[in-house]
Amino acid sequence: MLWELSIIELEGIYTAYEGDDKPIIKDLTLNIDRGEYVVIGGPNSAGKTTLLESINGLVKITHGRAAVCGFDVRRSGHDVRKKVGYVVQNFYFDPFTPFNTQQVVMMGRYGRLGLLKRPIEEDYKAAERAIRMVGIEDLAQKTIGTLSGGQQQKVMIAHNLAKEPEVLLLDEPFSNLDFSAREFLQAILLDLVKGGTPIVIVSHAFDGLPDIRIHLVVMNEGRITKDICCPARAVEDIVRKSSLRQ
């Protein structure tokens, strides 16, 4: 364990993909504390998804210091990913995918379990809890590929909740959801935040944010252009103005 103050500490990090002559993330510094609701906004190609994948070590950080959940991301990305949930953007599961909802949610526990270890009662209970939290009990035995986009999105959220993450990263989590499902998901996220789990959301849809103080991060061309706390109702306006100014 390295640092204990913030759960996510990024200091002057650079992230580059192999073959690119310029880094995607440039000299980025960001601290996120427990129980924060963080929204990352900004135009397309601002580096928002890359930032999420730098936090959990899926993308290589080339320079700077990054600590998440007390682990150095550059050295122990694997340990970080065991503790950080990540709902990815744009997934597609074909109708022949041979896994049902229950199995997919259970897979969320596998990283924590480690190699060669079998799930125990506690893991099955965590998966059941996650299914109940997201309200997909009726889909538990259905093959994931036969579900609608919105239902698959819910399954992937349950997959990450089953992990009981210390941090939850979500990339466009509302993109496939209807109005009531969005409200339902926002209520789940708010409960997590109240329980001390920080939520980091990349989104273009700011309506329906919970009525709490939001830690807003606006990005453009791989840099943070705004890092403030503001009321939920102000988020859309701030992001729009910041994006227009650039």
Partner: peptide, 22 residues
């Protein structure tokens, strides 16, 4: 031995990696 890891890889490699699996 590796049944759960094999299932996760067969489901989606990136999601398996993101969930902290080797």
């Amino acid at each position: 031995l590796f049944y759960k890891e094999i299932c996760a890889i067969m489901f989606n490699m990136k999601i398996a990696q993101a969930s902290g699996m080797r």
